[in-house]
Design a protein around this nucleic acid. Structure first.
Lengths: 331, 331
DNA sequence: CTGTTAGCGCATTCAG
DNA sequence: CTGAATGCGCTAACAG
């Protein structure tokens, strides 16, 4: 570790440490002569301020903790960028922790972040347990929840309006004249999947279509699964003219199955996905899908956090970001 | 900020701060009675150690800085996971900074990290400038370069063997019997692109094929560009039976163009990509490509860093990770 | 076994 | 305009 500190500079400049501090921090009450001398010496000896010490003193670490469940999932990239961009403007750095979908690790991360005295935390909780949240509250560390899909006590929250998104998707198909829509949902224990299914049903109801259970399927949200289930359904000769899928992977799998079956998208079967992952637009048939404002999710979260940090007393705010229908060639 | 510190506990327990510290840190020389009392009180008052103070004292922040050029690029996800997993085991957290491909921001990030007294840095530099690296050296902060593609002074380095990867790709095509291979390279100012082109040429030479300039093209590494250039080439009636691309995006674009032209992959034209991005395997024609051990890149980097931090004096180590040919259906 | 003292590097009173 | 003293929270050296 570098041994150059303000004291060293003080000795060389033959002034007090205090004066050095004032000069370095551009405070008044330092003659410009002294200031210049101090700055010059600081430069010469290669002085680098110790932010640990500064933080200890000021109670501000200028660091924000971010806990996400999956560092591998590209979904979070734009989210993280949104957070980072907004926070960097204000001089904050990100300490990013991967809970890996494990509550134990999530709690560990939160505790460590508190110990490291981060100024705020953005947390995407993995489960219904929330001891870590109470830690945050007890220590009065400002925090914002991102995309938690279970009920939490009265806290700041930023997420997507998934019911609306699914509604949009199905509505779009209805307006294209489709009446028999195959819905491939996600695993029902996944509350996200329930929300989207809800939106789909609501759209059906709005258009006066009654629910046909045969058209409601679920699958693990992977491309292969979408492929498998649609191939099977096609071979059964089920009557439908469009597919709404829980996410783009399933939708892309469906495209593949339909191709294999010798049919065309959207002429024979129209498809709408969800999420707008990168390859939705790059696929052979560019996919109509629901676009999530991921970057905005991040920047909104950061913004809320900044507000929280400024005035700790504000009451919790909930923000539901609106998804958007992105029409491409699959419908 | 929480006002509970060791002093508070000391007062309540009627012992000295020192004793509290010893008890809390499981040091010897504390009677078990006292220890229990201290721990209990600590629990009651909700004591949370202040790692800033601890770090200031110990000179160890237990934080590692990671500077990458693009937080949006999914390429780095497994890399970051590799770093995080390995470092977390040892009790470190990651402070991740996005240089956004801008040297100014890279330097800013490095300076901030030094100021925050991180114990080490993993840096993926964006350009040929390297003032920030000299800062690191001057402050003797252990650091490891990741995937820098320009000459750096004698430093620790972890990267991929791109010449070898490109060699593998072309070799694979040669062994499938292809002799006229269209090579779609990346922008030549990109040293990565030069390395891969080099590997391609070397493979040709190895098989005694002379270079035909007409078969050497370059494109911006995006799917649409791959599509455009291959469509154009097909319409020109150039004679070739296979394509080796600078990356998967270009290769996938080529697939699209070939389909549009009414040809089949790999029957009419074989294709090999590079990088093995997620969609390479999910595409309509699962892509044969060069797989990069990204996670390993991260964990190796972390490992080197840990070694550096333990014994600062070691001489720089260079690690070139070997890419692997991943055969799928496009060849 | 426990308390006193000192110091990590810095910024902030308060005096001069 | 400048310096001396104090403390942020913690640990370590040294006494008792």
């Amino acid at each position: 570790m570098s041994q150059v500190n303000q004291r060293l500079i003080a000795e060389k400049a033959k002034v007090s440490i205090n004066t050095v501090s004032r000069a370095l921090n551009d405070k008044p009450d330092v003659s410009s002569v002294t200031r210049k001398r101090v700055l010059k010496i600081a430069q010469q000896v290669g002085y680098v301020p110790n932010l640990l010490a500064k933080s200890l003193k000021s109670g501000q670490s200028k660091t924000i903790g971010v806990v996400i469940p999956n560092l591998s999932n590209p979904f979070f990239n734009p989210v993280l960028r949104g957070i980072d961009d907004k926070l960097r403007e204000q001089g904050y750095n990100l300490m990013i922790c991967n809970s890996n979908g494990d509550y134990r690790r999530e709690e560990e991360a939160v505790v460590t972040l508190i110990q490291k005295r981060v100024d705020g935390v953005s947390l995407t909780p993995v489960g219904k347990r929330s001891l870590d949240i109470s830690y945050l509250q007890k220590m009065s560390v400002p925090f914002v929840l991102m995309m938690s899909h279970f009920k939490v006590t009265d806290t700041d929250y930023v997420g997507f309006d998934d019911k609306m998104g699914a509604f949009l998707a199905t509505q779009h198909l209805m307006e294209k004249g489709h009446r028999r829509i195959l819905y491939i949902g996600g695993p029902p224990y996944f509350s996200l999947a329930r929300d989207r299914l809800f939106g789909h049903k609501k759209a059906l109801a709005t258009y006066g279509i009654r629910i046909d259970r045969k058209l409601l399927r679920t699958a693990s949200p992977k491309l292969e699964e979408g492929f498998r289930i649609v191939r099977k359904i096609l071979s059964e000769g089920l009557d439908f003219s469009a597919i709404a899928a829980f996410n783009d992977y399933l939708a892309l799998g469906a495209v593949k199955a339909i191709f294999e079956h010798g049919l065309k998208v959207p002429e024979d079967i129209a498809i709408v996905g969800y999420d707008d992952i990168e390859f939705a637009s790059l696929s052979i048939v560019p996919l109509t899908t629901i676009q999530l404002p991921k970057y905005l999710l991040g920047s909104k979260t950061a913004q809320l956090l900044l507000a929280k940090m400024r005035t700790k007393g504000t009451k919790p705010k909930k923000v539901l970001l609106k998804p958007q229908l992105k029409v491409r060639s699959s419908t």
